[in-house]
């Protein structure tokens, strides 16, 4: 798409204008209360303007030194994510919480993992996925182990992989043995992202019996772990993984990757 010079200038001017004098002295509760009705407006420009205005405030409240305001804004949003709020507004609040929410929004967001609306449920999962609080990891872990819904379990495993918290290793390792292949594949990918020695051990153990796409995913996770170990100076452990994968039965793609890894581990 071609952007004219005029478009560039306009976009930059909008960006500049928005940066002047915002958020410093904003009464957050009053502002949000005023914007909320418009966020559910029929007319798109009305809705869009309200959403953008609140988003802009949230973006700036994430800046270092604005912790109290950020936390206040998050608490205000948390109060609006329940089922009494119209869905578009709930989703918009969740989007902001995904970017600036911390500890204060974990409990309320966790409750939404059981929401009847699948879109809200997935948005809540993404909020927790990108939340730096250790509590968020615990919630995702707990939910992943408890759910019997295949796709949701896979999504939650992906969330744990995104966070790459070593605390998720044991639970993900158990899911490697899940009879549902999609779950086992997601568990393997998660372990590959955590990449610690415990994750490697689980992957190597599961690898022997795995076939097809699961074996491919486990091999990829093993290679990722080996790279991580090598980067952290654990050459012996990385070499062991590469040797394990350097076999013709793994297929040309994996064997070549393993051979390359062996050379790198040997400093060549």
């Amino acid at each position: 798409m071609r952007y004219s010079r005029l478009t560039t200038t306009v976009l930059v001017l909008i960006a500049v204008a928005g940066s002047i004098g915002l958020a410093q002295d904003v009464d957050l509760k009053k502002t949000l209360d005023e914007l909320l009705p418009a966020m559910n407006a029929e007319k798109i420009p009305d809705r869009s303007n309200a959403e953008k205005k609140w988003e802009e405030i949230c973006f700036q409240l994430g800046a270092p030194g604005k912790e109290a305001q950020r936390s206040e804004a998050c608490k205000l949003m948390v109060a609006k994510v329940g089922k009494d709020t119209p869905t578009p507004v709930r989703l918009w609040m969740l989007r902001q919480l995904e970017r600036i929410g911390k500890d204060e929004c974990v409990d309320a967001t966790a409750a939404l993992l059981d929401d009847k609306n699948a879109t809200v449920r997935d948005a809540a999962r993404r909020v927790l996925t990108n939340n730096p609080s250790p509590k968020a990891n615990a919630v995702l872990l707990d939910k992943m182990q408890g759910t019997g819904e295949r796709d949701f379990k896979v999504a939650l495993l992906n969330s744990l992989g995104y966070r790459a918290d070593p605390g998720s290793t044991a639970a993900a390792a158990r899911e490697l043995r899940n009879s549902d292949r999609a779950v086992a594949v997601a568990a393997a990918a998660t372990l590959g992202k955590v990449g610690d020695v415990a994750a490697v051990n689980a992957l190597v153990a599961a690898r022997k019996k795995a076939t097809g796409d699961l074996r491919r995913c486990i091999n990829d996770a093993c290679l990722a772990c080996a790279e991580n170990l090598l980067e952290h100076g654990k050459t012996r452990e990385a070499t062991a993984i590469y040797k394990e994968l350097n076999k013709p039965e793994e297929g040309r793609t994996v064997q070549l990757a393993a051979m390359k890894g062996l050379l790198k581990a040997a400093g060549k």
């Binding site: 994430g62 270092p64 995904e98 993404r126 992906n158 997601a186």
Partner: peptide, 14 residues
């Protein structure tokens, strides 16, 4: 740290 959260984004569903 909040800006660093923009380095990636969680993905939808599976």
């Amino acid at each position: 740290p909040e800006a660093a959260r923009w380095l990636d984004r969680p993905k939808r569903g599976t």
